[in-house]
Simulated scan of single mutants.
Amino acid sequence: MLHALGITHVVSVGECALVPPSNIATDDSSGGYHLVAGRGPGGHGSLWMEEREGRIKVLDIKGVCDDGIDSLQHQLAPICEWMERARSEGGKILVHCRVGVSRSATVTIAYVMKHLAIPLVDAYLIVRSRRLNVLIQPNMRLLYNLCGWEVELARERAEADVGALRCELAHSLNWPYLAREVHRLNEKYLH
């Protein structure tokens, strides 16, 4: 299905995408693999197999749960660089996590912020508008990561110019305001 959509690259956030299917056994000494009889179909459609055979490139971000504790802060820059390289090669990227609401939305928003040089709220609205009827809601820790990412990108664009940095951050929302607004949006669901 990924090939039918033209997907050439996959960012898997916290879902350990590169795990061999149950019907594949690897030979660590030769680096090869073989099918194990009686353990399901031939591994077709396995992201592990597709990546292994060079049909799809995968960036597998391990150890990031959607638990409000795990962070993506230090991974956003390398992820965005990987995505930018993929796009410059003419690739089409699928970003996924288990539900597609928090972790993958965070990565996508971070990329849009960097690629389009726009503030967090604008990037959120662009990503949200592309999801049609699917709500996106990075958990509060990941939203805080995005606030930090916004400052990091502003510093990068402003270089050492304090005036330019102020101008860059003039359209951003501060964390207390953003957290309060998210709480207001979710308040009706907490009763």
Rank of each mutant, 00 (worst) to 15 (best):
M49W: 02
I56F: 10
V121R: 01
A117Y: 06
Q73Y: 10
A164H: 10
S88V: 05
R157S: 09
A4C: 10
G91L: 05
W175R: 04
V121Q: 04
R103V: 01
P41K: 11
R166V: 15
S46I: 04
R131N: 04
D28L: 14
V19L: 15
H9T: 00
K62L: 12
K57I: 11
T8I: 08
G43T: 03
R157W: 15
R141P: 10
D70Y: 09
K92S: 14
C147G: 09
E89K: 13
N139C: 09
K188E: 13
L94P: 08
Q75E: 14
G14H: 04
E53R: 11
A37E: 15
H44S: 14
G31E: 10
N145K: 03
L185G: 08
G100N: 11
E187N: 07
S129T: 04
A154Y: 01
R103A: 04
T108K: 04
V19D: 14
E50K: 05
H115F: 11
I109E: 00
E159V: 15
G32W: 04
G31Q: 13
R157C: 12
E81A: 14
L142N: 02
R155L: 06
D28F: 12
I79T: 09
D122C: 11
D27Q: 07
L5F: 12
E81N: 13
G31N: 10
L120R: 02
S46L: 06
G40W: 08
H96N: 05
A110F: 01
G6K: 08
H96Y: 06
K62Q: 14
